[in-house]
Write a protein that binds this DNA or RNA. Structure first.
Lengths: 129, 129
DNA sequence: TATGGGGGTTCCAGTCATGGGAAGGTAAAG
DNA sequence: CTTTACCTTCCCATGACTGGAACCCCCATA
């Protein structure tokens, strides 16, 4: 398989796949013409990566997860720990965004949004209450 | 005021303030020795920027907001529009994270987390359901 | 046999909003 | 005078790509 087909099937841009090779996540062999010759196992791994990334795992987390995936003697506890830590980070991020959202929504609500200059949004940013 | 004091009072790292000057957000004059000599208005603007950034506005949004803030003839509608667009982006981001969170929480829940290799998390990543 | 199109390749630069650290000048304190 | 604490500029790194240039390769058609 060439990179185009793999990109299509894994749901990743070709650029991203080249990048993943660059950082050692996949190691497809090369054809005589220099083209990457992806095996089924490479495609499989890339699809795995695509899904892990879609769940927000960092590249380094992905590296760990792929390692665990390929290790028949892994302990599911190790996988779970990685996932739990990621879940915690996501929760923190959501909480942070939610805080912004609430403040922002209050301000937007308080703003008339007409052609006059008075604006509680700017007032808040300027004075910080 | 030197950069250290301004950093302290605006709640921004000195590095960040230098960066903001670099991209034209603030333009403090210089003393004879080359030190930045911040005026009250610079401090005020930097505090404004710090709060806008804390609400998640991008640097470009901040540039617009500062411009509106300094324009006595602004229409509050213009401010409100910027804030509403930002609010929408935040809501999208929260929804996206919430989706990840839910999937992840389900998977974590389903994983025994013991020393055996069977793991629904990896299974999901590998097969994608 | 040219030529055109649609693959593929590498390499370099840019994104966003900083942060780290080096190398050096300056000011305040003891 | 020396130490210490600032300040300056400059360049590199981050994460995870994305865009683009310049070039190679394979196949089909006129």
């Amino acid at each position: 398989m060439n990179i185009g087909e793999v990109a299509e099937r894994a749901g990743l841009p070709a650029k991203t796949i080249r990048y993943y090779e660059d950082i050692g996540l996949v190691k497809p062999p090369r054809d005589a013409n220099g083209y990457r010759a992806f095996r089924d196992s490479d495609l499989h791994k890339l699809a795995f990566l695509a899904r892990a990334r879609a769940l927000g795992f960092s590249i380094e987390d992905c590296r760990v997860l792929v390692g665990l995936y390929q290790d028949d003697h892994r302990a599911s506890a190790d996988v779970k720990r990685v996932a739990e830590e990621h879940l915690t980070r996501i929760d923190e991020k959501i909480a942070q965004l939610q805080g912004m959202r609430d403040t922002l929504a209050t301000l937007v609500d308080a703003c008339h949004g007409d052609d006059r200059p008075d604006c509680p949004i700017l007032k808040d940013l300027a004075e910080g209450n």
